[in-house]
Design a protein around this nucleic acid. Structure first.
Lengths: 210, 210
DNA sequence: AAAATTTCGTACTAATCAGTATATTTGTGT
DNA sequence: ACACAAATATACTGATTAGTACGAAATTTT
């Protein structure tokens, strides 16, 4: 998993040839930054190749066309930025700490160097390009659904164990948590500082657990 | 206010000439739909002129360039779709009914014909084009701030009157309400049906008032 | 009715877009 | 050392982009 690229370890160790002179992961992360800042349509191939430090044919050879690169960038973002927050939530036994950790870890991913908040790549982009790339949208919807399901199960356990009141019920809490994370990303994107958003975390935690 | 167009009632009733053969408001609303569906960069002038039923020079004569049209479309959207929800909130004396009405009226604006939810134009777009149009972003931030301030004042009154517990405090409630409206718009954009979102309104109301 | 003035319709322009053809470089396998 | 294969760099392609020039059409004012 993770090595579903085009010309990366195709099937057994095959032929020789000139070795690649750039790191695929580093290039992909550079592409993430560009898409994050400019969106799909707003990111030109000149922008991308410049940021990735490679030229056009190398990009096409390694990643396919612009849309394929975008999909891989989204997947890489979800794996490296989005997933850790969800994992942290599930790893923490205490539900209050887990919820707090979820927002904190998400915020970490929503901020870059220092105070500069940038929001969530997926939350910021998907709404826009919707309709023009239905498969990607479907994939992301499935991922969101799986994450939501995990949240529901966790809250069900906590309610059953008596750690949380039965109302709001588990699906309602899961929805609230996802919604407030999305809202945090939105605020990060639209100018809120990291300090602002950290201060709001207790409010969000209380809304989910109260 | 509202008549800050370019060639619309410039200054007194001036000269003669061939009359305009399209309705400016109708054309602007058609432009809103296109931007709503495709975003700023994704909406080409061909898309726009086709939907608006006018040709290029008429568009430029009436609205200015693409960016000016976009700004006017955003302003028109805020006035006709966004504002009514806020007004309904402030008009309803009972805070529970007011909060519920805010989400309901917002949802109404986030849905179009029948079940087809489309989200919020502003929430969906601004994050993306950010940086490329700083003035528009600033204007919208100011508007959001003014709305937030109105929410805070209302919640302060309700807390002072003993209709709500003092914690969470008024700013926290205002932030929660705005965030959950934004989240509702996001869900509307990413596939949730109107029925789904209506069912979630009590959860949101409780999160704000609880 | 004629002049003045504004809009409208067609067609154009220069720039930019994603994607590719071609040729050169750089390595591996024998 | 030689042949082969993959990646590189440059430069190109056709399509699409936002914006405009120009002449014809449609009104009001004189």
């Amino acid at each position: 998993m993770g090595a579903h690229f085009k010309s990366n370890i195709p099937s057994g160790k095959k032929k020789a040839g000139r070795p690649r002179r750039f790191d695929e992961t580093a290039a992909l992360e550079a592409a993430v930054e560009v898409f994050w800042a400019k969106g799909f349509e707003g990111a030109s191939l000149d922008d991308l190749t410049r940021a990735m430090g490679i030229n056009r044919p190398s990009l096409y050879g390694a990643f396919g066309d612009k849309y394929a690169l975008f999909c891989k960038a989204i997947a890489h973002y979800a794996e490296t930025i989005g997933k850790p927050a969800v994992e942290e939530f599930h790893a923490e036994p205490d539900i209050e700490k887990a919820t707090k950790a979820y927002f904190e870890k998400s915020l970490e991913g929503q901020c870059r160097s220092g105070d500069c908040a940038k929001g969530c790549l997926i939350a910021g982009l998907v709404g826009i390009e919707q309709g023009t790339m239905p498969e990607l949208q479907k994939t992301l919807a499935e991922q969101a659904s799986a994450i939501h399901k995990g949240f529901v199960e966790r809250f069900q356990q906590e309610i059953a164990a008596g750690h949380l009141p039965p109302s709001p019920d588990a699906p309602a809490r899961a929805t609230l948590m996802a919604d407030l994370m999305q809202a945090q990303a939105y605020r990060a994107r639209t100018g809120a500082t990291r300090r602002d958003l950290e201060a709001q975390i207790p409010i969000r935690v209380r809304a989910v657990l109260g």
